[in-house]
């Protein structure tokens, strides 16, 4: 029997978009959903929690402790633990990844907020900003570079971690790995790795682009 080539291009062409579950394109979409949702949900959860930790400083240490423990839990046993509750669904993957995202983003929100110079905060108060407007127009904007840096970490790690879900059949592109191992056929694994890396690069690039668009004042600072 001939040596199996690393990539069989005809296999990719045949399986790219079959319209069935398990085609490469549908796995790619699954992957984007399962990694994207935790990023968005994580940010939505981390913002209020982080702001509460800034407002009531004594909350921060316990919160950070709990979040670190969660972050330390290996993803596989968490999936297993959730199985009885959520079954073999995407939620089983999305929930733990959301927690990881929150664990990374809370410190980012807190650090971003506390890095705002005191004289800037004081002058915002003295100019007559009311609290909500100050939060939206001054504090959150100034915290944004740090939060966006946290988001970049979260985005890349979520995209990579989704593939672990393959062990319960919900791994997005990760399903290609189990497929490859089961059949001793490397092409799907190579495709999976390539697409995951590409996805991570695209997501990171998009966030860098977003950062430049949203924080021109920080960009000028870097180049100055």
């Amino acid at each position: 029997m001939d040596e199996e080539p690393l990539v069989r291009w005809d296999w990719i062409a045949r399986n790219w978009s079959t319209g069935r579950v398990g085609s490469i394109s549908s796995l790619l979409v699954d992957h984007i959903v399962m990694s994207g949702l935790p990023i968005v949900l994580g940010l939505l959860a981390a913002l209020p929690i982080g702001l509460a930790c800034v407002r009531w400083r004594r909350l921060y240490q316990p919160t950070a402790g709990v979040m670190n423990v969660i972050y330390a839990l290996p993803s596989l046993p968490v999936f297993m633990f959730l199985l009885p509750l959520t079954g073999l669904t995407k939620a089983t993957v999305i929930i733990p990844l959301t927690f990881y995202a929150v664990a990374v983003l809370i410190p980012a929100v807190v650090d971003g907020m506390t890095a705002i110079p005191d004289h800037v905060r004081q002058s915002a108060v003295a100019m007559g900003f009311n609290p909500l407007r100050r939060l939206l127009q001054v504090d959150l904007v100034l915290a944004m570079p740090v939060v966006l840096a946290g988001l970049r970490v979260v985005a890349v790690s979520s995209i990579s971690l989704v593939s672990v879900g393959a062990l319960i059949g919900q791994g997005g592109l990760g399903n290609l790995f189990t497929d490859a191992f089961k059949r001793d056929f490397p092409t799907p694994a190579v495709v999976g790795i390539a697409l995951i890396v590409a996805l991570a690069l695209v997501a990171d690039g998009a966030l860098v682009f977003l950062q430049r668009m949203l924080t021109p004042w920080a960009r000028v600072r870097r180049s100055a």
Partner: peptide, 22 residues
Amino acid sequence: DPPTLRRGIGYVIQQAGLFPHR
């Protein structure tokens, strides 16, 4: 009301306290 009061009083702080993002 404090925000109303403050908008009617100019304030100059040490180190200027300018908003870096504006």
